[in-house]
Amino acid sequence: MIDPITTQRLFHQGIYIAIAMVILFLQLMPLSPSAGHFPGPDLTLALTLAWVLRRPEYVPALSIVAIFLLQDMMFMRPPGLWTLLVLVGTEFLRARESSLRDLTFVLEWLVVAGVLCAMVLANRLVHALVMIPQPGLGTELLRMLMTLLAYPVVVAATRFGIGLKRAAIGEVDALGHRR
């Protein structure tokens, strides 16, 4: 029999993967007649960053790699580059989750903005170094801005829709392990 903590982690990991797959499905559908004029946010990235800062144990690195590698393939990006940058960014945040737990939401948002800026800059730098054609700088900056603006909405949706909140300081699970 599986213990309740493992069941809860697997359940939330399944929810995360299901939401990411629904977002991917919706991004692949031609829903808007004005597609291509105004870049939308990267909701999967916003979701991943929000979940890593709320409950990092629910979003293992393997799930992040699988989802973003699938996105790389579907959106015809260089396979693995954006996946690697997202993994590095999320692991950076995961390592600092306990210290970021005490921050206000605005400061958390600024930290996420810094990580996202570093990821976009590194992506553009690698593309320039290996001379891969890349979208215009304005388009990428606008997508980054839209993702940052969508981040509070994603956090609110996961908090009030799914009930995913930060672990309290000193909170322990059923086995006495600190979260």
Rank of each mutant, 00 (worst) to 15 (best):
N123K: 12
L125K: 06
L125M: 07
V126E: 01
V126H: 06
V126P: 03
V126C: 05
H127Q: 05
A128V: 06
A128R: 11
L129G: 05
L129S: 02
V130N: 00
V130S: 08
V130D: 02
V130Y: 13
V130F: 12
P133N: 10
P133S: 08
P133A: 12
Q134P: 11
Q134I: 08
P135L: 11
G136C: 01
G136V: 00
G136P: 05
G136M: 01
L137V: 10
L137Y: 08
L137Q: 01
L137S: 09
G138N: 05
G138C: 02
G138H: 07
T139V: 13
T139I: 07
T139C: 04
T139K: 06
T139A: 04
E140D: 15
E140W: 12
L141N: 03
L142I: 13
R143D: 10
M144E: 12
M144R: 09
M144G: 10
L145A: 15
M146G: 10
M146N: 14
T147Q: 01
L148S: 10
L148Q: 13
L149Y: 13
L149D: 01
A150N: 08
A150C: 05
Y151G: 04
P152R: 11
V154A: 03
V154P: 04
V155Q: 09
V155A: 06
V155D: 08
V155Y: 03
A156G: 10
A156L: 15
A157D: 03
T158P: 00
T158L: 14
T158E: 09
R159H: 10
F160K: 08
F160V: 07
G161D: 02
G161M: 06
G161E: 03
G161L: 07
I162P: 01
I162Y: 02
I162C: 03
I162N: 02
G163R: 08
G163P: 14
G163F: 14
G163H: 13
L164Y: 02
L164I: 15
K165Y: 09
K165M: 04
R166N: 11
A167D: 11
A168E: 06
G170F: 02
G170I: 14
G170V: 06
